[in-house]
């Protein structure tokens, strides 16, 4: 039982490692947020599930933690991305399309008329 828990926790740590490599390799804020959110969510969930196997007495609290992380992690990264967009942090040069900019311009033209 403890071995299973240790392996799952190790997997979680590995996912977190990949997230940190991704943070260094990605070219701009938005891509970094992508990697950070997904990998850190799964990494944390896996670590906590591993702890459930090691310490069955804590399982209720750990399940609650997993639920909170699943609900709050995407929200925080969405808010960060939105803030980054509206203070005009530049995209990387490999960006191909920006529909939000087009719709913003349409909105300002409409209000000017």
């Amino acid at each position: 039982m403890e071995l299973v828990g240790a392996i799952i926790t190790l997997l979680g740590a590995f996912v977190l490692l990949i997230a940190s490599i991704g943070l260094i390799r990605m070219p701009d804020v938005y891509n970094r947020l992508q990697v950070g959110t997904k990998a850190s969510t799964l990494g944390t969930i896996l670590s906590l599930i591993g702890l459930v196997f090691i310490m069955p007495g804590w399982s209720g609290k750990l399940i609650l933690l997993i639920f909170f992380i699943m609900m709050t992690n995407p929200v925080s990264s969405h808010v960060l991305a939105r803030a980054a967009y509206f203070i005009k942090i530049p995209f990387t040069s490999r960006t191909v399309v920006d529909k939000l900019k087009v719709s913003e311009r349409a909105l300002t033209i409409k209000t000017e008329d």
């Binding site: 990605m26 490999r94 399309v97 529909k99 939000l100």
Partner: peptide, 26 residues
């Protein structure tokens, strides 16, 4: 999907050419 997305992220992060083509879609 969460698991799939992590496989995807892992693949993109670890491959040397960094296969991304980012953009904002509606």
């Amino acid at each position: 999907d969460l698991l799939k997305s992590n496989m995807d992220v892992t693949r993109r992060v670890l491959s040397p050419s960094l296969p991304i083509r980012p953009g904002i879609v509606e």
